[in-house]
Design a protein around this nucleic acid. Structure first.
Length: 321
DNA sequence: AACGCGTGGGC
DNA sequence: TGCCCAAGCGT
């Protein structure tokens, strides 16, 4: 990250006194971390996985309640695997990006069928499951299984861009990001800094959680609260006088009138109905542009989010009404 | 590698 | 208000 504008300084894994970033952030996390339900010790690996999927592009505040209901209803992968997709999509509700729910359903079926109903603990196997990519695989490996793997999300990339590279923003994700974070994890190996460090291999997952927490609550995208930052005195961005971002500007998300909005409307009708609905009911959901509505309905069919019955009506997949 | 994919809250 | 953003993934 920060390949075009970053300073040349090496990652400040240790300062002159031998303390590492982890030595500061791990205790900070233990004192300041939000009490999120999926972080409680009794949470299963399945619970962690469900939380990570729900949290993809969806704020914490909107995930808490659906997550509780989900785990109560489907406490194990096999329980969810046995449910029809229509139930899964209704339980997903308005979390957004409902393809995530479908992929989680498929992942649960694979875990139940091929992995003894046990959430895998190695990154490669996790990444082979639907909807689990670079970030989620490592988050589950670290947070559910305690593995020492770098967990890099948008928060971590921003924290590293600022504290390590001295840039205001992270820029586009890059393969390099994982290595950038790996060197920050405690338990790397022998050496003076490692010898003197108070954190160890077992703290690696906590360090990843701490980097994420710092990015989510202090080192936020807009209006970072630097006065509350535990690593302010080690922050390269601060040291450089907090220069403005001079990299490429991210394109704004469009929304009004997009296919995304139309698909959302159509799905909302299906979710709200007890069973299959007529074509007319779906037409009423988007009168502005019939051709667009038809195209979106078709794309929902292709995605497997909707199916058409023999009588011509439409339904959530597996929904018998 | 850039793009499309839902939804709603904060400023 | 309108715009920006939110624990990404698959193509």
């Amino acid at each position: 990250m920060g390949t075009t504008t970053s300073s040349t300084s090496a990652a400040p894994t240790a300062t002159a006194d031998g303390t590492t970033l982890a030595d500061v952030l791990v205790p900070w996390f233990r004192a300041h971390a939000r009490d999120l339900p999926w972080r409680r010790p009794e949470t299963t690996a399945w619970g962690v996985l469900v939380s990570e999927i729900m949290l993809q592009q969806t704020p914490v505040a909107r995930v808490e309640e659906p997550w509780r209901a989900w785990l109560e209803r489907w406490p194990r992968p096999s329980a969810m695997a046995a449910a029809p997709a229509s139930d899964v999509l209704r339980a997903w509700g308005k979390l957004g990006y409902p393809r995530r729910a479908l992929r989680l359903h498929a992942a649960a079926q694979a875990i139940a069928a091929d992995h003894g109903d046990v959430v895998p603990d190695d990154v490669a196997t996790l990444e082979s499951l639907p909807g689990i990519g670079t970030y989620t695989a490592r988050a589950v490996a670290a947070f559910a299984h305690g593995q020492r793997v770098p967990v890099v999300d948008t928060n971590v990339r921003r924290v590293v861009a600022r504290a390590v590279h001295g840039d205001a923003e992270a820029g586009a994700a890059a393969a390099r990001d994982l290595a950038d974070v790996e060197v920050l994890l405690p338990g790397a190996g022998a050496g003076d800094a490692a010898e003197r460090s108070s954190t160890r291999h077992d703290d690696a997952a906590t360090m990843s959680a701490a980097l994420m927490e710092l990015g989510a609550t202090v080192c936020v995208a807009r209006g970072p609260r630097c006065a509350d930052c535990p690593i302010l005195d080690r922050c390269a961005w601060q040291r450089r006088g907090r220069p403005a971002w001079d990299g490429p500007v991210r394109k704004a998300q469009t929304w009004a009138g997009t296919d995304r909005q139309v698909r959302g409307r159509l799905l909302d009708v299906l979710r709200g109905a007890p069973g299959p609905v007529t074509a007319e009911a779906l037409e009423a959901a988007w009168l502005t542009n019939p051709a667009q509505r038809a195209g979106c309905l078709d794309s929902l069919l292709v995605d497997g989010l909707v199916e058409q019955l023999a009588d011509g009506r439409f339904a959530l997949p597996g929904d018998v009404g």
